[in-house]
């Protein structure tokens, strides 16, 4: 599996198709996060932005390889494992983005609550922000896995399914991704930093289920 993920990451990096989602992430974070703003608000925003970016990265990874090359790798390692490796490559790329984003936001933001009165413990806030970013990356992976090959093969359907699904997962109150982001924003008012273990666990489950379903379906559909 390591060799497969390395192969998929090399495909992603060398194809330079990672550049548009990276730019989207950078621009959205730059627009929404300004120096000296309350730390927890900014961390929540940066994590939320990562969700659509991850879904896009998944789309790039599962469609990047020409079909013939995909068949060669599938014969060697099994079609389910090759598909899983492309999802993992996207998740790795998203995790790198999330870590970098969290680090930058932590360094430039003001570690106080929104009213500027209560100091926020910096390591704890950074950890909570990172876990929220990972939660969003995992949900983005799940959305990307369910809205692309093998479920939706035409680019039109895939993209038009991905956009509303991403919005839904971010906005609807029952969504653990929304809960994690909301937790940070709420904490920015009262100064009680929550560590979103529950949403993170839900995100791991969701991503595993979506990836599992996709990998089972891959050899059965064209």
């Amino acid at each position: 599996m390591n060799a497969l993920v390395r192969y998929q990451l090399a495909l992603l990096l060398r194809s330079q198709r990672w550049l548009p989602p990276l730019l989207l992430y950078a621009v959205l974070v730059a627009v929404g996060v300004q120096q000296g703003q309350p730390l927890l608000d900014s961390l929540g925003y940066a994590a939320a932005v990562l969700l659509p970016v991850t879904a896009w990265l998944v789309r790039i990874c599962v469609t990047g390889e020409p079909e013939a090359a995909r068949h060669c790798a599938a014969a060697a390692a099994g079609p389910g494992r090759t598909h899983l490796s492309s999802l993992l490559a996207a998740l790795v790329a998203a995790t790198v983005l999330g870590c970098a984003g969290t680090l930058v936001v932590t360094m430039i933001s003001d570690p106080h609550t929104g009213d500027g009165r209560t100091a926020v413990p910096l390591p704890l806030a950074a950890a909570a922000g990172l876990l929220t970013a990972l939660t969003c990356a995992l949900f983005g992976t799940a959305v990307g896995a369910l809205c692309n090959r093998p479920f939706l093969r035409s680019p039109g359907w895939a993209i038009s399914a991905m956009l509303p699904t991403v919005l839904l997962v971010l906005v609807v109150g029952v969504s653990p991704a929304n809960a994690a982001v909301r937790g940070l924003v709420t904490a920015s008012h009262d100064g009680e930093v929550p560590v979103p273990w529950l949403p993170f666990t839900a995100a791991v489950l969701a991503a595993a289920l979506a990836a599992g379903a996709a990998c089972l379906l891959v050899p059965r559909r064209r």
Binding site: A10, L11, R14, S15, Q16, E65, P66, A68, A69, H71, C72, A74, A75, A76
Partner: peptide, 16 residues
């Protein structure tokens, strides 16, 4: 195992 496959057409659109 291991198995290997050669497709009838192999597009070279790979960044390697």
């Amino acid at each position: 195992r291991p198995a290997a496959y050669v497709p009838e057409r192999f597009p070279a659109a790979l960044p390697f």
